[in-house]
Design a protein around this nucleic acid. Sequence first.
RNA 1: GCUCCUGUAGUUCAACGGAUAGAAUGGGGGAUUGCGGAUCCUCUGAUGUGAGUUCGAUUCUCGCCGGGAGCACCA
Length: 577
Amino acid sequence: MSIKSQLHESLHQLSEKLFGISVSFSVDIPENIDHGDYSTNIALVLAKPVKKSPREVAAILKENLLLDDSLSHIVDKVDIAGPGFINFFLSKSMLINNLNIIEEKSDTFGTSDILKDKKIITEFTDPNPFKEFHIGHLYSNTVGESLSRLVASQGADVKRVCYQGDVGLHVAKAIWGLQKNIVTSATSLEELKKKSLHEQVHFLGQAYATGATAYEEDEEAKKQIIEVNKQIFAKDPEIVDLYETGKAWSLAYFGEIYARLGTVFDHFFFESEVGEDGKKLVLGYLEKGVFKESDGAVIFPGEEYGLHNRVFINSLGLPTYEAKELGLAPAKYEYFPYDQSIVITGNEIKEYFKVLLKALSLIRPELAEKTLHIGHGMVRLPEGKMSSRTGNVITGEWLLDEAKRRVVKIMYDSSVDDDKIDETAEKVGIAAVKYALLKSGIGGDIAFSFSESITFEGNSGPYLQYTFVRTQSILTKAQDTKTGRQDDDLALEKEEEILLRHLVHFPEIVAYAAQVYAPNLVCEYLYQLAQKFNLFYAKHTVIGSEQEQFRVLLAKSVGQTLENGLTLLGIPVVYKM
RNA sequence: GCUCCUGUAGUUCAACGGAUAGAAUGGGGGAUUGCGGAUCCUCUGAUGUGAGUUCGAUUCUCGCCGGGAGCACCA
């Protein structure tokens, strides 16, 4: 049990014992370190029912708290402050002993078993074959990977899956565009098959742009594309080679990006696999009145539930995204009988997802109940909107390459050609991009500016990596220093005490971040940790000082915590940069 | 028109209904012949607006003003 919940429990019991009431109150980690390591508002909440002033209530609680043996071990001092907050200060021995705990727990420091035996399936990234992997996908992947790691750190059994739209109008546009562009550029599918993956994917991207533009501007082309769409569903031999080849290119390309980002999916779902099941479900429940026919299409009457109507099967008899998604939920459950299914997508389909969940709740209520949709914001570019229709997109790959290029430029003489440097630059670049995406809350939009997001100063991924490198540098130089158990009666410098008091909170922050699905809380914590360490580092010498043993252990603990935290964010560490 | 999201320093972001609204960046001024200066310190500067609920509101409710997304055969 964490210190926080111990305090909560003790206060709860005390309130019942002294006043005979149980109220809802909180135990917080104060922002201001002068307000203690933990604080509670219980006295403010109790004041009214007890008919005493908050400070009086606090005083009564304080007196009795000190009698509690289990608390006197942990807590050194209890203060009453402000309007009636009770502040707790942890004992020094507790703080120092935490370093020993970190050393023992090593890479499991920060984990817990709150979600033990829970099966959680996470779905994220979801790029569509035949289309670009753009920054939005990069963002979804970064968020999804971090959330997956967070819930896994709390003991959950996690499976990552990716759902890809390999059938539908967008594919028809790309296929049509491929046919067209192969002719206009006087090449052939056989010729293209010999080219590099890069060139193939580029050709695909252009084909999609060609098809998408024609669909909007050319009536004849539009009709043809709709025909192609039917051919795709029918697996028409005329297009099957083109289709399979293009899809394979896309998937190979996505695979390269996942490898760079450190995501390993346990399973890939395709619309082509779940579409039929979804359609059958819809038709089955059409008879039962869940769905309705309207203008030749089958719709779900969301308006009857305060939402909006959506088409599930279009008038051509083809399942739309909605019906396919309806088929996906049971398929996921069959693959992995989950306790919770987390779907991470952009905010723009939030309303749509509500409709979908409503429909699912009438068909498979137990699955709908277990499904959680988390919407993330858009990545806005100051330079203007990107559009895959015009082929004017910033791709995820381009962004990663650009970040890496800038790292090399800043860190090294760019002429150097060295595998080690290349590997480090890649990791630092990934850190810059991922951290920029994760440091703010996932609900809001992200204003992505290269100058500010690919930065190596201030609140950035590379800053954290740099701080980690410093800790490791100390450890290398102090190899012979023993870091065994530390005495309690050490005289602490102010900067040391601040660090120790911050380190205690890591497991609580991680647990909370996992609970509320907020990787940005981990970012915030790590950034503060790095700042506090750098301040300590600037003011005190580690190696050669009288407290070398203690300080080396402190550096080691900070390094371990930084590494564990960065790992939860899906960000790699480096040992030299 | 309807639904949802959103409005905090010049800019980009924080703050379970709590204490003096916290950072980064920008701008001004400084620091360590020391373990990596991609560091550290310091100054500067903000809750769109009007009510309400509360011991206490950036946070909750309502109005107004501004920004964004979605709303039938795309995904």
